[in-house]
Design a protein around this nucleic acid. Structure first.
Length: 719
RNA sequence: AGCGGGAUGGGAUAGCCAGGAGAUUCCGCCGGGCUCAUAACCCGGAGACCGGACGUUCAAAUCGUCCUCCCGCUACCA
């Protein structure tokens, strides 16, 4: 690895994945931002010149679709969301040096510049692809403007992603049975010319990159399959008017074409850095030094020497993201940077998900603790920050629950860290009016140095968790130390020894303030003030752990309050009530035979009711569906598939093999004999290598099967 | 199906990359101490054959092979 340990002489940039300007923020999302903030603060403490930047992602079809739903201008809609982020992040002490958005002029300019560079270097080509088209509205239907069935698994899917089925990304033109979300009409396919980025030009480069990029192991491992396999070229334009206009010549006969949102979104990392530079001056932070100095010339790397890049050792760019967007930051983005002559990321830190009491957060089910909920709870942001940063290793999932939070807070923050500082400073203030006049003992100074080493190691290993653990471990040592020396017994017998012990404890407290600052910035500042320190704990370097505190300070206050059981219960009840309210309706009527002990876990339920689709379907169209009563003859799971089951269904005229995503949702053994409703004239598809000839009807995420109420024979037509 | 990650005392986790006396921390349990401190803190104890099976080695939680179960990714869910 060619990089030096931090701090280096280069300016560093820490970024967080851009939040999408169409939704709310919950404690799951916040993991990325808290971790990025913590890491950036720690680098700063080390003396590394650091810019911490981010911005709202304004473009893309979700914003356009959501804005249209509300009948407002997408720009207005996105800006409104953007403003909310400007309040949420500070509420959690997430302190970006610059937080912009992707529609700012700087970003539009830089994005255009980069795309033009790609054009100039010959990395872009045009190709005709079939895209969905709404004949009535007479317009193309990019991404989420079209819904249909997934060509891979047959589930209902959005234009760009099979969001309910196999989760695959769908390239434009892939979706089957496309329906326009604008008019509800069946969409046609039309041939359109689009721009593609020739990712394959960078295959060799990426193979080198993936071995040298630092950060978390998942970021290096997950994209390997792509990079070592065949890279697909990347369609970087969309037929819509919401986005950044394609900066170069449009394909013949085309008047509008915008860049795919994933082209301009990461460029915001650079744009935000530049705007930060512009604001504070390049003396203070030089964005070019971070992003461009030392970068090889634009273009594809020399095939004969794909490692040339690694020699440059410049640009400390660190991306903090969720594990769902690893590919974007380790495949597309580095290729763009390399092609346009920018520095590649030094590290990609990808965190695991946050679970809520063991299960996934679910926005649609309202199964979430929102940023607003936490703010309203009145709990200090540092409590969440500590819990999320130290709750698990960064790459692993971490569980959030109110009582889990209380347990950690009460034992580690209140009992260990807060209590140690409070008892030390209170003792010091009462007996000495501040820091006793004595030197720090060697053993304590060494222990503090060890903690500082742990702090440094956490940074070099990209382990934000270590940044939270180091101070608590030091406080634990402090408690043992004060207990072992019992200064309260010494004040009379051996005042010198007592002063020595308390002097050590005050130094430990000061070291704690410095070490806890990245994870617990608010509480660190309080402690700093209690020590009578002037200036801000945010501005001091790591060496301050050894510097003497002021000789005089006032009476301290408890740093952390106990999180009482009643509070936890109240918060938990609120959460449970909301989840149940959202779930209401799925589990009300299980008229199924008694004795089925199918696990209730069924990951996702229907959630808040989606509104009934506005567009009416003509009866003629409905009649095209041939719905039949069927009787399940056999049901077996499909090996390797998570949810798919293979069913044999008697539909009167014949027996059909149907593949359905119900493996986890039903006790398959109990299915034979059940009468269900089948779409008999659905086109065949192949799922997991098994042909599916028809589709069964089921309600909600739990796949509650539609059955017959009386005794309609298999084969009876359903109307 | 492929790729990646995981399985460690009652619960939650560390250790594994650089193999070495039966293993970390937090919660819980049992006993003791202390009283400066927020019923907090300190000390001691019980409790795990480190998912299963082979193998490498003087020595395996740690390395290899196979298996079981869980989870993620597979081209916009943090």
């Amino acid at each position: 690895m060619s990089h030096d340990d931090f701090p280096t002489d280069n300016p560093a940039v820490v970024t967080c994945g851009l939040p999408y300007a169409n939704g709310s923020l919950h404690l799951g999302h916040l993991r990325t931002y808290v971790s990025g903030d913590t890491y950036a603060r720690a680098l700063d403490t080390l003396g590394q010149q650091t810019a911490f930047v981010c911005g709202s992602d304004m473009h893309g079809t979700p914003v356009a679709v959501d804005a249209k739903k509300r009948d407002i201008d997408p720009e207005k809609f996105a800006l409104k969301q953007h403003k909310k982020y400007l309040e949420w992040f500070p509420a959690f002490d997430i302190d970006f040096d610059y937080y912009g958005h992707t529609r700012e002029e700087t970003n539009a300019e830089l994005t255009s510049e980069i795309v033009l560079e790609l054009e100039e270097r010959g990395h872009i080509f045009e190709d005709e692809i079939e895209v969905a088209w709404d004949p009535e509205a007479s317009q193309p239907l990019p991404d989420r403007y079209v819904e249909g069935t997934c060509p891979y698994c047959g589930a209902k899917a959005r234009g760009d992603e099979c969001d309910e089925g196999c989760q695959r990304h769908l390239e434009p033109g892939e979706i089957k049975k496309p329906v326009s979300t604008i008019t509800g009409n069946p969409a046609e396919y039309r041939s359109r010319t689009h721009k593609f980025f020739r990712l394959s030009d960078f295959q060799k480069y990426l193979q080198g990159f993936i071995d040298r990029v630092e950060g978390t192991s998942n970021a290096r491992n997950q994209p390997r399959e792509w990079i070592m396999g065949e890279l697909e070229d990347w369609c970087i334009t969309r037929d819509m008017d919401w986005g950044i206009d394609y900066p170069d010549e449009l394909p013949a006969g085309r008047d509008t074409l915008v860049l795919y949102v994933w082209v301009d979104a990461p460029v915001e990392y650079i744009s935000a850095t530049k705007q930060y530079s512009d604001r504070v001056g390049s003396e203070e932070f030089d964005w070019k030094a971070a992003w461009k100095d030392g970068a090889p010339e634009a273009g594809a790397p020399d095939e004969a020497d794909p490692d040339a890049w690694a020699q440059t050792d410049s640009g400390e760019i660190i991306h903090v993201i969720g594990q769902d967007i690893i590919q974007h930051h380790t495949v597309f983005w580095p290729s763009m940077l390399r092609a346009a002559g920018y520095n590649e990321p030094r590290a990609v830190m990808a965190c695991g998900f946050v679970n809520l009491d063991g299960d996934a957060f679910s926005t649609s089910r309202n199964r979430a603790v929102w940023a607003d909920d936490y703010v309203e709870s009145g709990l200090h942001p540092d409590l969440y920050r500590y819990h999320i940063v130290t709750g698990s290793e960064f790459v692993a999932d971490v569980d959030f629950s109110w009582d889990g939070l209380a347990e950690r807070v009460n034992s580690e923050l209140v009992g260990t860290l807060g209590n140690f500082c409070y008892r030390s400073l209170l003792f010091a203030e009462r007996n000495y009016g501040g820091t006793p006049d004595a030197g720090v003992s060697e053993a304590v100074a060494e222990r503090i140095e060890t903690a500082a080493e742990e702090f440094r190691a956490a940074i070099d290993d990209y382990r934000v968790r270590g940044l939270g653990e180091a101070p608590v471990a030091l406080a634990r040592f402090g408690n043992e130390y004060i207990q072992r020396h019992e200064p309260w017994k010494l004040t009379d017998d051996d005042p010198e020894a007592a002063a020595q012990v308390i002097r050590d404890c005050v130094q430990l407290s000061k070291a704690l303030a410095v070490l806890m600052e990245p994870v617990l910035p608010g509480k660190a500042a309080e402690l700093w003030a209690q020590l009578g320190e002037s200036g801000s704990v945010h501005d001091v370097g790591l060496e301050a752990v050894h510097a003497a505190p002021p000789a005089e300070f006032g009476e301290p206050a408890e740093l952390f309050d106990q999180l009482e059981d009643e509070t936890v219960e109240r918060l938990d009840e609120q959460l449970q009530a909301r989840i149940e309210a959202a779930d209401d309706g799925d589990d009300a009527d299980d008229g199924e035979a008694a004795g089925t002990e199918t696990d209730e876990s069924g990951a996702d339920d229907a959630g808040d009711m989606e509104p009934v689709t506005d567009e009416r379907v003509p009866f003629e169209e409905f009649k095209q569906l041939d719905l039949r009563v069927g009787e399940v003859l056999a049901a077996e799971p499909i090996d390797g598939a998570d949810e798919l089951a293979r069913l044999e269904v008697d539909i009167g005229v014949e027996t059909r093999q149907i593949v359905a995503g119900i493996k986890q949702l039903h006790d398959l053994g109990e299915l034979p004999g059940t009468r269900i409703v089948v779409v008999a004239n659905l086109e065949k598809s192949e799922l997991f290598g098994v042909e599916s000839d028809g589709m069964l009807l089921a309600a909600g995420e739990d796949a509650d099967l539609l059955t017959t109420q009386a005794d309609a024979e298999p084969g009876t037509r359903v109307r």
